[in-house]
Design a protein around this nucleic acid. Structure first.
Lengths: 144, 144
DNA sequence: ATCTAATCGTTAGATATCTAACTTTGTCTT
DNA sequence: AAGACAAAGTTAGATATCTAACGATTAGAT
């Protein structure tokens, strides 16, 4: 019995993403954080940059999940939240000194990890790889 | 301030895998299942005599997670577990008729999804893509 | 034969994530 | 100005996953 005509792309993608994410999390733990803490720090930090929208999309977590992590990190003293006086719906999130320090540590670890991840793969292959990833996302986008 | 020299490969991979997995889960729900139910059925089906540890390894989940899904699916009448008389530590997992029927339905939906996912991407591009995925896995493998 | 190891699976407890509903606040329409 | 709509964030409840500890069973060593 043959289950599939060919090896499904999605399965391969999911398996790879999982092992890579687990390895990344291990690297973050070694640097004193976790993957979600890194993602949250990055998202907070990127609000200070111009391309906030783009990075927020890249990170891809829901608001409720962000709230969850912000709660934990606020309790750990990594950041503070306060209402924006200009628009009281908005929470202004700012990193404490400890938060900034952890961010920098994790950022370096993330850069090192990405270097390890890309090792031996030429830039043009990586560029094509990114194009295929974008095509896959487009193919499953809701408004087709 | 520049956070990264270049867009990190891992972030792109994770984001893509996430949206693709969500779309796949939606397709499975439409066909009467879920993503984890599908992978569990698939692994049971592709090796009827496997023990639970082997099944979990195929799917890429831990034994405890598999127990969780098998519990749910057994309660739904999709499969049965019984002790192997030869080695009473082992649980033999078998699909019921309902399990077989659901498997076939989900299999068709999975094939259709994969067709949609790969739409417009030439086979040689997909082959290169799979090679890069394999290289990424190798680069984070523990025993480098 | 009995004590020790390993194996298989489950249970318990923790974390991460999602969706849906709700609260608060601001904006827009008429 | 009032009521409806939109936006930002939180809360509640659900599912999926992990690790660690455990119980049952088997295999191996002496």
């Amino acid at each position: 019995m043959t289950l599939f005509d060919r090896p499904p792309v999605g399965m391969n993608l999911a398996r790879t993403s999982k092992v890579v994410a687990q390895a990344f999390d291990a690297a973050m733990v070694e640097a004193g954080g976790t993957l979600p803490v890194w993602v949250t720090l990055l998202s907070v930090k990127s609000k200070e940059l111009a391309n906030q929208r783009e990075l927020a999309g890249m990170i891809g977590i829901q608001g409720a999940t962000l709230t969850h992590h912000l709660n934990g990190m606020e309790a750990q003293g990594l950041l503070t939240r306060r209402r924006d006086p200009e628009n009281r719906r908005v929470h202004q999130v700012a990193l404490t000194e400890a938060g900034e320090a952890l961010f920098e540590k994790l950022r370096l670890a993330a850069v090192a990890f990405d270097k390890r991840l890309r090792a031996g793969i030429p830039d043009d292959r990586l560029a094509e790889f990114a194009e295929v990833l974008a095509a896959l996302r487009a193919n499953v986008a809701p408004a087709e």
